[in-house]
């Protein structure tokens, strides 16, 4: 077990390095000289040369990658071209906001998905099953940025119940747990929750249906266990896989919330990415993608380890 733990963590290191390399290459594949990502286009030629030497851009690519990596490991993601501030300064608040949105959406999607999927798996072939499967297909097929717009039309424009934009009154980006802020969270979180809801419903339905077909369930029923008792056994057997799916979904939501954040002007990483793309602010683009991807790598690792710990049947050496 301990051996597996160590090996799994060691395996994550080359993956993380390779992910870093892909992020490093993002600036390289961008059209034009990477130097343009650092100096303004109207800088005089000698300044450009000076900066090129300072940044090590005259050195071969592998050396550049090494230098870049050294800085990143120390927490230096470079400076934004648009604002001149360190990338990390804006990124840290963005990450916090995105993480909160993604966490709320995952919890909501996971709860709904478990209920729907559990019911559908238990009563296979019933009307309830069909409704759950239909909801799940709709959930994974809906373009969520469009769903966000529909939500705004219904709840903000027509009913005027909930705000359509931002994360707090007056466009503030700081969070606190009062109604004024929570009100801003509802629409984006619900919108973002439909994808994990659909996926978790499908997965849980499959797992539960498979467990219900197994002999030990019949045996439990036969020995006179109550419905509740049987239910607990099913939960115990379904939990590791369901949690694993949810853990990965949280990662997908962190990376995929850019569209929903754009619709609701949610001040997270998505909005940061969006403005970075339009101002061609490559250091911000690179830094944000890097941090989100690293988060996903770490989450993958955690999910894997958690699954092994929760399910004694998985023996990994």
């Amino acid at each position: 077990m301990l051996y597996y733990l160590l090996r799994r963590i060691l395996y994550a290191i080359p993956i993380a390095l390779a992910v870093g390399f892909v992020c490093f290459m993002l600036v390289q594949i961008a059209p034009g000289d990477p130097i343009n990502a650092i100096v303004p286009p109207d800088a005089p030629a000698d300044v450009v040369e000076q900066v090129r030497r300072d940044y090590g851009l005259d050195k071969p690519l592998p050396v550049q990658f090494g230098l870049w990596l050294l800085k990143v490991v120390q927490g230096d993601l470079g400076r934004s071209l648009a604002t001149g501030r360190p990338v990390w300064a804006d990124l840290s608040t963005g990450i916090a906001n995105t993480l909160m949105l993604a966490l709320c959406a995952s919890l909501l999607g996971f709860t709904l998905g478990c209920i729907l999927g559990g019911l559908a798996g238990t009563f296979r072939g019933s009307v309830l099953d069909r409704v759950a499967v239909g909801t799940a297909v709709a959930g994974v097929s809906v373009p969520h940025y469009w769903l966000g717009m529909v939500m705004v039309v219904i709840f903000s424009v027509q009913l005027n119940w909930l705000p359509a934009m931002g994360a707090g009154p007056g466009g503030s980006a700081d969070w606190s747990w009062d109604w004024e802020h929570v009100k801003h969270l509802i629409l984006p979180a619900v919108t973002l929750s439909v994808i994990p809801m659909g996926i978790v419903t499908r997965t849980v339905r499959g797992i539960v249906a498979e467990i219900m077909n197994q002999e030990f369930i019949t045996a439990l029923r036969g020995k006179g266990l109550t419905r509740w008792g049987v239910f607990l056994h099913v939960v115990k057997n379904a939990a590791p896989n369901a949690l694993a799916v949810m853990g990965l979904q949280l990662g997908y939501l962190m990376g995929g919330s850019i569209l929903v954040e754009t619709v609701f002007s949610w001040p997270g990483t998505g909005l940061l990415l969006n403005s970075a793309i339009f101002q061609r602010d490559l250091p911000v683009l690179q830094g944000t993608i890097l941090v989100l991807a690293m988060f996903f790598v770490a989450l993958n690792l955690i999910v894997d380890l958690m699954q092994t710990a929760l399910d004694p049947r998985i023996k990994r050496a």
Binding site: V19, V22, L26, P31
Partner: peptide, 24 residues
């Protein structure tokens, strides 16, 4: 398969946005 693993380490929407964002 190891090269595949690296691209698997990105959420799909993020990877699409990253590449097309960098390329323009």
């Amino acid at each position: 398969m190891r090269v595949t693993d690296v691209f698997y380490a990105f959420p799909s929407v993020l990877l699409a946005v990253a590449i097309s964002g960098a390329l323009g």
